[in-house]
Computed example of a mutant assay.
Amino acid sequence: MKISAKKLQEIIKSHGRWLRNEEGGERANLRSADLSGADLSSADLSSANLRSADLSGANLRGADLRSADLSGADLSSADLSSADLRSADLRSANLRGANLRSADLSSANLRGANLDKTYYQVVRIGSRRGTTTYCVDDDNVLCGCWNNYKGGTLEEFKTRVESVYGREGNNPNEQYYDEYMAAITFFAAMKEMK
């Protein structure tokens, strides 16, 4: 059953109250909901239940989906650019054709997810002990706020690591340099195998 835009806004408002521990708030339960084509741009749906929801073609640009349950959801052709998907459960989700540009997938569970692009992640790396993600198909590395969260090519990332952590940088730190260079070597090997 398709949820109307008005009803969806009511659910999001109630969810916001729930997140703030305010009276009358309720966690968004959109399990198996038909949200295809919905405009959820910049919506705060952190920790929401979106399991098996139909979000195909939805606008989730800049949405906060931290720790949301999106397992089994259909996110095909959805715009997830700049979305915060940290620690989201995306097991068995359909992400074919989804725009994940600048999305933060740190610690997201992508096991069994259907992706039409190949991603590799290295976790607990660098000074922020974060996740560095590489999309082989786009030759794009996402690492924290580097390049305004847009990332860049593997070669650009290598240049950045050398300038920040290498001997030429202002803060030489051999451990971080070695970690990032090992990740770069791994990503380059995966790119060659593609």
Rank of each mutant, 00 (worst) to 15 (best):
T132Y: 06
D44Y: 12
D137A: 05
I3N: 03
L75P: 02
G151T: 00
Y149G: 02
L45Y: 04
Y177K: 03
S36R: 05
D89W: 07
K13F: 13
D74M: 03
Y149E: 10
A88E: 01
D64A: 07
S36C: 08
S107H: 12
S87E: 11
S102M: 07
A48D: 05
R129N: 11
N59I: 06
I125P: 01
D79P: 08
G166F: 09
I11W: 04
G126H: 00
E168G: 11
A73V: 01
Y119A: 02
N170C: 13
T118R: 10
S42A: 12
N147S: 09
E10K: 09
Y119L: 08
S107P: 08
R61E: 12
K117F: 14
C145T: 14
R129W: 11
L154N: 00
G166N: 10
Q175S: 14
Y165F: 15
Q9M: 11
E156R: 07
V164I: 14
Q121L: 14
W146P: 00
D74W: 04
G62C: 07
I11G: 02
E168K: 15
N140G: 05
L50D: 00
V136L: 10
E162S: 06
E155G: 05
S127Q: 15
L75E: 00
L8K: 01
C143N: 10
S52F: 14
S107N: 14
G151D: 05
N148I: 08
S81W: 05
W146Y: 07
S107Q: 13
C143E: 08
N171G: 11
K2A: 12
N171D: 15
S52G: 09
K194N: 15
A63S: 08
D54N: 14
G169C: 09
S46L: 09
R20H: 12
K6N: 12
